Simulated scan of single mutants.
Amino acid sequence: MLAPESLCSTFKHEHYYRHNFATKAELFAAIDNWMEFHNSYRRDSSIGMLSPDAWERSLTVSGTDQAA
């Protein structure tokens, strides 16, 4: 999982520097869209090539299995 500083750096290098935003609203929409992509679809090698959402779901399932 990325630390907040790494997350901001990743966003800037993958998206912000490659686009021009005319308004703050456009920038905020781009951030929302990128965060949705990052958390739901982008695979991360540090968590077994899963998306952050899939990794979190796997922890929840594992925790449920251990309690049973």
Rank of each mutant, 00 (worst) to 15 (best):
Leu2His: 12
Leu2Asp: 13
Ala3Trp: 06
Pro4Met: 14
Ser6Ala: 15
Ser6Leu: 15
Ser6His: 15
Leu7Pro: 11
Leu7Val: 01
Leu7Ala: 11
Cys8Gly: 15
Cys8Phe: 14
Cys8Leu: 14
Ser9Gln: 10
Thr10Gly: 12
Phe11Lys: 14
Lys12Ile: 10
His13Tyr: 13
His13Thr: 11
His13Leu: 15
His13Lys: 15
Glu14Arg: 07
Glu14Asp: 11
His15Thr: 13
His15Lys: 15
Tyr16Arg: 04
Arg18Gln: 14
Arg18Ile: 12
Asn20Trp: 04
Phe21Ser: 00
Ala22Trp: 09
Ala22Gln: 11
Ala25Tyr: 00
Ala25Phe: 08
Glu26Ser: 01
Glu26Met: 05
Glu26Gly: 03
Ala29Phe: 06
Ala29Lys: 05
Ala30Met: 00
Ala30Gly: 09
Ala30Phe: 03
Ile31Asp: 05
Ile31Arg: 06
Ile31Pro: 01
Asp32Glu: 03
Asn33Val: 06
Asn33Pro: 05
Asn33Tyr: 08
Trp34Ser: 07
Trp34Ala: 11
Trp34Met: 08
Met35Ile: 10
Glu36Trp: 09
Phe37Cys: 10
Asn39Phe: 01
Asn39Pro: 01
Ser40Thr: 15
Tyr41Gly: 12
Arg42Asp: 00
Arg42Ser: 07
Asp44Gln: 10
Ser45Met: 08
Ser46Thr: 10
Ser46Gly: 12
Ile47Pro: 07
Gly48Cys: 03
Met49Leu: 12
Leu50Arg: 00
Leu50Glu: 05
Ser51Trp: 05
Pro52Glu: 03
Pro52Ser: 00
Asp53Val: 08
Asp53Gln: 00
Asp53Ala: 06
Ala54Met: 03
Trp55Ala: 00
Glu56Trp: 02
Arg57Asp: 05
Arg57Ser: 08
Ser58Asp: 00
Ser58Ile: 03
Leu59Ser: 03
Leu59Met: 11
Thr60Lys: 07
Asp65Met: 14
